[in-house]
């Protein structure tokens, strides 16, 4: 029975997500919730970026809503969205059978390896904004990129040791493929036989239009430039604060609040990019500024307990 259930195809977008959730839960991952900020990709979630640092073991999986303003197409394009979902898995240290585990997850969502052509094609991942890079592949299923598979080597300028294995699934694309849907807006969101059956378009078509218009034509660039500067300044200010909190008398390094500002700066940069006001050469400068923040946050995180910091053992009395 169980076998039959896993090879049967999911019938909706949400069922595919639920299957991934239970698969990775069964493999021992903590199922986290999305980060409550606008990010460009699931990697930005501190559960990936920050937790890939330091020596502590980690295993987490989560859905992350992601925004790429330049990809907005007013809901008209069958494959492009300015707001979409990524499914993210991060395991540290990377287990030796990570490829097998990954292929198991494809099976769980109904991709039968005997009928499809699944390939690991070189794709070295680099995030200039996060000062991070890793080696791995994009995974192709019948010529379509269905996931990104990366062994993190560096994050925020720090060498990763142990190395984390990261999997990122583009959920809409993957689901469209599995469900055999040609236009993302036609994809069943919930059970197509439910009393109130909703398509992806019922949920998101309108918002895609609204955001596309705002992203491309209305977002106020002066305000955004100012917000960028504010986030940058606030990030630095948080990190400049001494570790010892005068009020509680505890050592509190505020890596996460600072990192929130870094995420903010990164998203504002993406918005400015969509407005077409950042040139190729300026891009580099802005990316460099975000990277500086990311590196500073990484430096701070490794000074926290989650990042592997340990208090000096108290001197013997």
């Amino acid at each position: 029975m169980a076998e039959a259930q896993t090879t049967e195809k999911p019938r909706s977008f949400q069922e595919l997500i639920l299957r991934l959730q239970s698969y990775w839960a069964a493999k021992g991952c903590a199922i986290l919730q999305p980060y409550d900020m606008e990010v460009g990709a699931g990697t930005f979630h501190p559960a990936t970026t920050l937790r890939a640092l330091g020596s502590k073991s980690w295993a987490a999986a989560y859905v992350q809503p992601s925004r790429r303003p330049t990809d907005g197409r007013y809901g008209d394009n069958p494959n492009r969205l300015q707001h979409y979902y990524q499914y993210q898995v991060l395991i540290k240290p990377s287990p030796p059978d990570l490829q097998e585990l990954y292929l198991g997850s494809l099976k769980a969502i109904g991709i039968d390896a005997a009928l499809h052509d699944i390939r690991f094609v070189e794709d070295d991942w680099e995030s200039p904004t996060l000062g991070a890079w890793g080696l791995g592949w994009e995974v192709w299923c019948d010529g379509m990129e269905v996931s990104q598979f990366t062994y993190f080597q560096q994050v925020g300028g720090h060498d990763c040791h142990p190395v984390s294995g990261e999997l990122t699934y583009g959920l809409e694309r993957l689901a469209m493929y599995v469900l055999g849907v040609d236009h993302v807006m036609d994809m069943p969101y919930n059970d197509p036989e439910a009393d109130i059956a909703l398509s992806y378009g019922d949920v998101f078509r309108q918002t895609e239009g609204e955001y596309s218009r705002w992203n491309f034509d209305l977002a106020d660039t002066d305000t955004l430039f100012q917000h960028f500067k504010d986030a940058e300044a606030e990030c630095q200010r948080i990190l400049d604060a001494p570790a010892d909190d005068p009020k509680t008398g505890r050592r509190i390094v505020m890596a996460h609040p600072a990192y929130d500002q870094c995420i903010k700066a990164s998203h504002i940069f993406n918005l400015l990019d969509a407005r077409g006001v950042i040139s190729v050469t300026e891009r580099q400068a802005y990316i460099g500024r975000v990277r500086t923040l990311a590196k500073a946050c990484a430096d701070a995180f490794v000074q926290t307990e989650a990042g592997g910091w340990q208090a000096e053992p108290a001197a013997a009395q």
Binding site: N77, N79, L115, D117, D142, G143, M144
Partner: peptide, 29 residues
């Protein structure tokens, strides 16, 4: 022409259909 790494039970019908679909998406863009 696409080159698969797989001898599939359906003589590659699924694989080819998938590739065609991806191509169509790329080319519609």
């Amino acid at each position: 022409v696409t080159v698969a790494n797989m001898e599939a039970a359906d003589q590659g019908a699924t694989i080819l259909a998938g590739n065609q679909k991806v191509l169509a998406a790329r080319l519609s863009d």
